Structures are given as C-alpha cells and as structure tokens.
Amino acid sequence: MNTPSSSRWAEHVGSRVVIRFRDGEGVRDVLGELLAADEHTLRVQGRRGPVEVRLGSVVAGKPVPPKATRPAPPHLALSVADLELVMAKHWQAAEQDWLGGWLLRASGGYTGRANSVLPVGEPGMPLDVALTEVEDWYTERGLRPRASLPEPRPNDLDGEQLLAAAAVFEGAGWEEITPTSVLTAPVAELRGLQARLGGRPLPEDLEITLADEPDPVWIEQYRYRGQAVPEHGIRLLTSAPRQVFASVKTSAGELVGLGRGSLAEGWSGLTAMKVLPQWRRQGLSLALIGAVAEWSWQHGAMSMYLQVEAGNEPALASYAKAGFVFHHRYRYLAG
C-alpha cells in the first residue's frame, strides 16, 4: 500500500480508506470512511465505531473505492450513483454545496460537470421544493440551472431514486443537452497498451512526458468544446487529490498530443485527451492511455473511467478497442 504524506490525508476526508498501523497489540488494519485528519491523528469510521490512529504509527494506507454493490469485476461493481460521486472528486467545482444528497456545483460556467447539480441521493425535502432550491442557487450565481442526470442500470438499488429525480427536471420542461457515456476499464489491462494491441512504438522523434502541473503549452493546446481554458479552469484541471498531465512532444518541443489523469477514491480518471489531426493513426492515443494507466497503477488505482459524448462513434470505437466497456450514461438538462 502506498501512504499519502501527512499533508495529503486531509484531501481524503470523506473518502473510504484502508490504513495499516501499529499499536500496543501489534500491526492492525482499519477500513472505513476517513472522518478527520490533522498533523497528528487520523480518525476512521471502522466496522465497530470510530478508530483514532496516530499519524506516526501509520505503516501504510490509501484511499479505496466505495463498497461494491454487485458481483462483478471492480471496474463494473459500483452502482451508478457511487461512480458518479467518485467522478465528482476528480473534477471538483470551485463552489460546492449539498442539498441533502444532491451536490450543487458552480465554476463560473466552465464545463458542464462543474456547473450542474448531481441529484444522486435524497434531497431531504419534497422533490418539487428541491427543484426550486436548485433553480434559485444557480440564478443567484448568474448561471443557467443545469442538472447532470445519470441513467440507472438494471437491478441497481439506486435506480428508483435516479428516475424520480430525473422526472422532476423533465416535468419542469428542462431542455436536454449532450448525452454522455461513462466507460470503465481495469487499469492492469491498460498498461503497455500499444504492445498488447500489436501497435508499433512511437516514432523516434516523439516522447511522452508526465508532469504534476500543466505547463503553458499544455494549457494553450487543451480545448473544452473549442473553448480556451480560462484562469479558473486551471483550478478545475488541478482539483483532484492528485493528477498528472501527459504530453507527447517532438524533439523540437512541439506538443502533438495530451491527456490528463487523476486519482480519487481509489479510481483513476482519464480526461482532456487530444491528438493533433496530422498526428492521428500513429498510436499516440494508445500511448497516452498506457502512460496514464502506468502512473495510475503505480499510485494504487485498479479501475479507470472516462466520459465521452454518446454520439462520438469514432472515440467510442477507439476506447472499446483499448479495453473500455460501457458502465452507464448521463445527460444534462438545462432550465
């Protein structure tokens, strides 16, 4: 198990973690939600109640995914609601509020994920009242109200709640925007992707580099629906507990491909994938996925997700070839 530094434990409060530590009885493990973390102590909700762990006694520890809700490989075992909450930790809005179990997010209008309500729990009030609260919250911030509505999978326990929430926004006449598919894959199978698929190595004058922060060239090349990254967008790109920025550059320093990996809740996320048109069909996308997967594996992630527009058939086919499979779909509705 990898062990986060003391400064990083606070980033995982609210997450499910496993911690191995020493006490008077020897070496013990505790698994559960991290309730609190400071420079001296970690507090974990164990099976029999809260457990306090001295930071100096920690042998190893890491965030782990939420508990599986169905018998399936790890990348398919989470419910739709649980995976949606995991993904929200990878792309955290500048402003976030909870309306019961609904997550309100705002980031100056940049990206749908960071400027929409995620209604995957009970709001703690009648649904029509919750709808009005959502509309008022976004109106106060000068934003058009928007909801990200996941579609349940058959036999998921959260299906009834997801459908009821969606019906409220549909009944209010909100406009549908951009259906999106969520794909997942085992990280172990994505490592060394080019070699596994029989692809040739990158051309000799190309190199993949990984960095903790996006450099100005990376920021300049990345576009969200054709939109340049605003200043507050850089905060979004670096909002996960940990992320990596992959670049494919020529020997002359020209950036020809890029991608972002992120880590949260024991999962890896893949976003911001781009290869310049003149460099496509040379294995750069596979190389980028493989590089992010290797980084994810080294940091303990077993599963990876990505999001792609449901109608983007070339991208869906490419990701399917790499080993990704369909998990669920969500759609945006705007008021």
Rank of each mutant, 00 (worst) to 15 (best):
L197I: 12
A240T: 07
R196N: 03
R105Q: 03
S247L: 02
A317G: 07
G101A: 14
P66G: 08
S57T: 13
Q227W: 10
P63F: 04
L127Y: 13
A114R: 01
F21P: 00
P145C: 15
L284A: 10
V129N: 03
A147L: 11
Y332S: 12
E176L: 15
V229E: 00
T139Q: 12
K62Y: 01
V117Y: 00
V244C: 04
R43C: 09
M273L: 14
V53N: 04
L210Y: 10
R54T: 12
P179L: 12
A60F: 06
L127I: 11
L42R: 05
P65F: 02
S296N: 03
E313W: 13
A211W: 09
R141I: 15
R47Q: 15
A301Q: 05
L35G: 03
I219M: 03
E294Q: 09
G226A: 05
G259H: 01
F245I: 08
E11T: 14
A77S: 14
A320G: 14
W267D: 05
L127S: 09
G335S: 13
V120N: 04
A310C: 04
L255H: 02
S116L: 04
P119K: 01
E189A: 14
V58G: 12
V117R: 00
A93T: 03
Q161N: 15
V275I: 10
V53M: 02
K67L: 13
G198H: 08
Q243H: 13
K62F: 05
S5D: 09
G261E: 00
R242P: 07
D29V: 14
E52H: 08
P152H: 06
P241F: 12
L206C: 07
G266H: 00
P66N: 03
E309N: 06
S296K: 02
E133D: 07
L284T: 07
G266R: 00
T250R: 08
L210F: 11
E133V: 14
L127T: 10
L190E: 00
P123W: 13
M302C: 01
P216H: 05
M87Q: 11
G108M: 06
Q278M: 10
P123R: 08
T238E: 09
R225S: 14
L31C: 11
Y110T: 01
I234G: 06
V275D: 00
P73C: 01
E151F: 13
W137V: 08
G323Y: 01
L34K: 02
K67Y: 07
A264W: 00
E176S: 15
A228G: 10
A272G: 07
T178G: 10
P230R: 10
V44Y: 06
G259F: 02
E25C: 12
R43W: 08
V129R: 04
M125G: 06
L190C: 09
G142Q: 02
E11M: 11
A293Y: 01
G269I: 06
A165G: 12
P152R: 02
T271F: 13
G24E: 04
A164G: 09
V80H: 02
S5W: 13
E135Y: 13
T111W: 01
A246I: 12
R105P: 00
L78K: 00
A37P: 15
H232Q: 09
A114L: 01
T69E: 04
V120R: 03
T41H: 05
E11C: 12
A172F: 10
A88G: 05
N115G: 10
T139R: 13
S15W: 07
S15K: 02
G323A: 07
E160W: 11
E122Q: 15
S247T: 13
W174D: 03
L270D: 02
